[in-house]
Computed example of a mutant assay.
Amino acid sequence: MSGTRTYEFESTVWKVDDPGTWFFTTLPFDLSDEIEERHRDSAAGFGSLKVRVRVGATSWTTSLFPSKQAEAYVLPVKKAVREAEQLHDGSPVQVTVEVL
Rank of each mutant, 00 (worst) to 15 (best):
M1N: 13
S2P: 12
G3D: 12
G3A: 12
T4G: 05
R5W: 02
T6W: 03
T6R: 12
E10P: 02
T12V: 13
V13N: 05
V13A: 06
W14L: 00
K15G: 00
D17P: 13
D17L: 14
D17M: 11
D17I: 05
D18N: 15
P19T: 08
T21I: 05
W22A: 11
F24L: 02
T25G: 06
T26P: 09
L27K: 10
L27M: 15
L27S: 07
P28Y: 03
P28K: 06
F29N: 12
L31T: 14
L31V: 14
L31W: 01
S32W: 06
S32L: 06
S32M: 05
S32D: 10
E34A: 14
E34P: 02
I35T: 03
E36C: 02
E36M: 08
E37T: 13
R38Q: 12
R38S: 08
R38K: 15
S42G: 09
A43V: 03
A43H: 02
A44W: 00
G45K: 15
F46L: 08
F46E: 02
S48I: 00
K50P: 00
V51K: 02
V51H: 01
V51Y: 00
R52T: 10
R52D: 12
R54H: 02
R54K: 15
G56M: 04
G56K: 11
T58Q: 03
S59M: 13
S59N: 12
W60P: 01
T61L: 02
S63T: 01
L64F: 01
F65S: 11
F65P: 02
S67I: 04
Q69G: 08
Q69S: 14
Q69T: 15
A70E: 15
A70I: 00
A70S: 12
E71K: 08
A72P: 13
Y73K: 02
V74L: 13
L75H: 07
L75N: 07
P76Q: 07
P76R: 07
K78P: 11
K78Y: 03
V81C: 09
E83L: 11
A84E: 13
E85D: 09
L87I: 08
L87Q: 08
D89H: 14
D89S: 14
D89Y: 04
D89I: 07
V93S: 11
V93Y: 10
V93M: 10
V93P: 07
Q94S: 15
V95T: 07
V95I: 13
T96V: 12
V97F: 10
V99T: 11
V99G: 10
V99C: 07
V99M: 09
L100M: 11
